[in-house]
Structures are given as C-alpha cells and as structure tokens.
C-alpha cells in the first residue's frame, strides 16, 4: 500500500507541472499582448516609453521561461494576481466563491445517489422485467437531457405553474439562513444531479447484475439466507465499489463543471466566476480559476484511486505498473 501510494504521488507531480505549463501558455497564446488586452482601446494612447515601463512592471520583457517560473513561484505562494473588475486578489475571490460550488456539488451527489442506487438495484434484481425497462428508459433519458435544458425547464415549470422564481440573484449562505440557502440550492442541485443519477443507476445495475452471478452470492443463497439479506449484505456491498469510483470522478467534475447551472440559476459559484472572467477577459482570474479547478480535479481523482484501492481488497498494489 505504501509503495502504491508513493508511486501514485510521484506520478502526480509531472501532471501538476504539465497543468501549470498549459494554463500559463494558454493565456500567453491569446492574440495581442496583455497590455492591450487589459487596457483595451486606451492602450493606443500609451507612448513607447510608457508601454515599455508597463511591460517591465508586469515582467513581460523577460523571456517566457523566466516569466513562467516567476508566475509559478508566485502561484505557489498563493499569489495568483489581481482582478481589476472585482478589485480583489484572485485567490480570496476563488475562496469566496468556491464554498457555493462545493455545497452544490455535495447536494447534487446526494440527490443522484438517492435516486440512482435504488432504481439500479431494483432494475438488477428484477432483470428484464417491466421495472427494469422503466429503469433503463429513465437512465437513457437522464443521459440525454443536458443540464442547461433541464435547468431551463425547471425554471419554466416553477415560474409558470408555481409562481416561484428560484433565481432571484440574492444568494444567502448556509450560515446566514440554512433553510433559505437550501431552498435556493435545491433546484440547481437537482439540475446537476439528474443526469448523474442516470449514470449511477447504470453503474449500480450493471455491477449488481455481475455480482449476482458470483459464487459467493450463490453460496449465501444456498445456505438459506433470505433474499433481502443476500442482496444487502453480500451483493450490494461489492456492487457499490465501482459506484464509489464514479462518485469520485463526478465530484471532481461537479466542483469544476457547474458553469452552466450556476449561470442559469444566477449562483455566484466558481463556475460563474470562471465564465464571467472569460467573457470579461480577466486573464489573471481565468488563469487562477482554471489552475484551481484542474488541480482540484486531479487531487479528487487521486483520492478516488486511493479510496478504491483501500476498499477493494482484490487490487494488489505490488503488481500495479
């Protein structure tokens, strides 16, 4: 286990370095120089000396490799630059918006699991029945409805039939008013959790189907255990292992992938921060948020691999790689 852990951690470092190079280079690839990008039309009024002074100030007169190391050094110390529009440093901005996305992702996962797992189990133990057919139709539909469509439909139904507008724009944090906070987040969470519940359902179903044919399930049955006990204690426990992986991967996606849902429901999460930064050409912010999300994603995936290895005794660490 220790060796496996070390191997994974060592493989993790080049990925991080690669991500940082990519994020750094991406912003440098933007057509036009940064000064013009930041100042817009006003850049035309700069004299050559003023421009040179600004370039020296931002370190833009240095060779790219040196610029990268300066940027990386700053980033490692938590300095991701400054957002002019928000009038704040980038890192505190990210930290301010991140908890909303985190809470949203957490709620979406809870919703997805409480829908997906029961339907998946039912579909598997009533394999090829009417229930199974409905379950599979549900999962097919869930995967085909993109979140921007579901979100739009939810808002439409709520406003037309119930007279509620969930996207009032005044976000209330959980600590201020937990009840109001949950009311504001529940519909975006459903929007994000719905298609994930379809993946959970598919994964639970196929894992259950596979496990139900295993020897240990037959043994459990033949020693006279009740079907309920066989399913809960012997089949389900093993079938849920791949579901755990799926949750982890999806959690990583949700943490960085709530761009559209947050936009539709006007929630000030990190996805909305990123989209606004992109449309307003706030490059330092784009860089910071992208790096933050990508690193998050890699860490979550690493954690999932480790959890997976820990809960599945069949994985032998020695033979890995």
């Amino acid at each position: 286990m220790t060796r496996y852990l070390t191997q994974r951690l060592i493989a993790f470092i080049p990925t991080l370095i690669g991500i940082s190079i990519l994020v750094f280079a991406a912003i440098r690839l933007i057509p036009g120089d940064q000064i013009t990008a930041q100042l817009g039309t006003e850049a035309g009024m700069l004299s050559t000396e003023q421009r040179a002074a600004l370039e020296a100030y931002y370190g833009l007169d240095q060779p790219p490799i040196q610029q990268y190391f300066v940027w990386l050094g700053d980033a490692l110390q938590g300095n991701f630059g400054f957002s002019i529009r928000h009038g704040s440093a980038v890192l505190p901005l990210i930290m301010k918006h991140f908890p909303i996305t985190l809470e949203l992702a957490f709620m979406a996962i809870v919703i997805a699991l409480s829908i997906g797992i029961p339907i998946g189990i039912l579909s598997a133990i009533r394999h090829n029945s009417l229930i199974d057919l409905f379950g599979r139709m549900f999962s097919m539909l869930g995967l085909a409805v993109p979140n921007f469509l579901l979100g739009t439909l939810i808002i439409y139904v709520l406003s037309v039939y119930f007279g509620i507008l969930p996207n009032s724009g005044n976000y209330t944090s959980f600590t201020e008013d937990p009840w109001l906070n949950i009311q504001q987040l529940i519909f975006p969470a459903i929007t994000m959790g719905f298609s994930f519940s379809a993946s959970v359902m598919r994964m639970t179903r196929s894992a259950m189907l596979e496990v139900m044919n295993e020897d240990y399930v037959r043994t459990a049955r033949s020693k006279g255990l009740r079907e309920r006990v066989v399913i809960r204690r012997h089949a389900l426990r093993n079938a849920l292992i791949p579901v755990v992986t799926l949750i982890g991967v999806e959690f990583g996606y949700l943490l960085g992938g709530a761009f559209i849902t947050e936009q539709i429901f006007s929630l000030p999460g990190i996805g909305r921060l990123a989209v606004n930064a992109i449309t307003q050409r706030e490059y330092a912010l784009v860089q910071g948020v992208t790096l933050f999300i990508a690193i998050n994603f890699v860490i979550v995936n690493l954690a999932v691999d480790l959890i997976y290895a820990a809960i599945d005794p069949r994985i032998s660490y020695a033979s890995h790689e």
């Binding site: 994020v23 991406a26 990583g252 992109i278 992208t290 999300i293 995936n301």
Partner: peptide
C-alpha cells in the same frame, strides 16, 4: 484529461 471537458473547451475558445 485533468481539465473538466467544458472548462478546457472554454479555455480554448477564450484563447
């Protein structure tokens, strides 16, 4: 692969 797909697409479109 380390970038969520929509984020990577957004980044490329930004550039």
């Amino acid at each position: 692969f380390a970038f969520p797909s929509l984020l990577l697409a957004l980044l490329i479109v930004t550039i």
